[in-house]
Design a protein around this nucleic acid. Sequence first.
DNA 1: CCCGATATAGGGTAAACACCCTATAAATTA
DNA 2: TAATTTATAGGGTGTTTACCCTATATCGGG
Lengths: 217, 217
Amino acid sequence: MSEIRLLLVDDHEVVRTGLRMLLESCEDMLIIGEASSGGEALQRIKQLNPDVVVMDLTLPDISGIEVTRLILQDQPEVCIIALTIHEDEQYFFEMLRAGASGYVPKRAAPEHLINAVRAAHKGEVYIHPALAKILVKDFLRYSPDESEADDIQELTPREIEVLELLADGLNNEEVAARLYISPHTVARHRENIMRKLNLHRRIDLVRYAIRKGMIEA
Amino acid sequence: MSEIRLLLVDDHEVVRTGLRMLLESCEDMLIIGEASSGGEALQRIKQLNPDVVVMDLTLPDISGIEVTRLILQDQPEVCIIALTIHEDEQYFFEMLRAGASGYVPKRAAPEHLINAVRAAHKGEVYIHPALAKILVKDFLRYSPDESEADDIQELTPREIEVLELLADGLNNEEVAARLYISPHTVARHRENIMRKLNLHRRIDLVRYAIRKGMIEA
DNA sequence: CCCGATATAGGGTAAACACCCTATAAATTA
DNA sequence: TAATTTATAGGGTGTTTACCCTATATCGGG
């Protein structure tokens, strides 16, 4: 198996040299280039098409996050790992949205970065435990407690069907047309649904459906 | 600094023995007990109050997920790490919801488990890269693309305030009462908001606000 | 076999809503 | 200073909603 072809991006030479020494000590890795700015990184990645990029987020010209976004638009197969001093939610989430394959704080033990590179190359994602904690917290915030999922079972199949359409933004008449029934009947179903779920406004139906994952926001 | 006090839960003795050998080779760890079933685990954890529990999910009586839920209700300070053959989304997410501090597949290299134990003890969360990938994917699914966030800037502060209240389920009159203005004025603001955002129904406001994270579903 | 519960369907009405109009004072911007 | 934007306030009209009423078909239990 051939080596993992790496590119290092950091505006401090001493950091790049340190990284080079660390990663070149791994037999399965080969550093094929370095960049000291965002612009240079864009250029080098296009030229060299590395397997994995180790990317500092704080760069003099373009931020590492922006570089990540731009690169992945053109070369989605490149894996980009953030290596940064930032451990706050904002940078972390933005980098994930940009498409990062890993996130490692600079203070972390060197093995973390090595793990991250290997994971990224396998198509996995390495998130340092300090950040994973934040991600899980976010997951739990948006993940509904299943214990709430009792009341929905009281709905009949027809009612669920009506609920989905209503929550999707259709009005009574539109739902009626879709189901080949009278608008009055739709209204009737809606009433039963709202009574069963103890809701009183149409918009409550929307929020309920989103919470239950029936529709997307 | 004292050792990390560990409890091992797995229904196969050979696995427990292997784990014991692995983890006892770490100077910072001390195995204070074992359990071979969910019921036994509940008992032992109450008795011994370990720092970290390494928990198999497939147990003969109560599932490791259920044990985790029960334990964390009474002893939220205990860190529980899932060590399992399951790498699918369902088990993983359910274990996170139960409150796990880490998730490691059994096929992973031993260092992963050691890292997970140390991370959990530091109050962090270790997610194996294969699972972290799933978690990030889920994050991206529910995380709005910021590129859509242009139109909201066209709203005046007052309009944003009105939007939040409307989206929260209040009707015109209730918003008016809250802001000490006339219901007509609220209606007027709403009209301007809907025109600016190119929305036409009240429920569209709700979904817009949820997408933007202004309110929760 | 009938009874009651449930799913489905249709109708009426008062209130709320969406969309149209104008207007004035204050703050911002040019 | 003049022009624009913002927040406030009002009126009018047709549509949609939320809640009230009943009716029929089906299905399980007494």
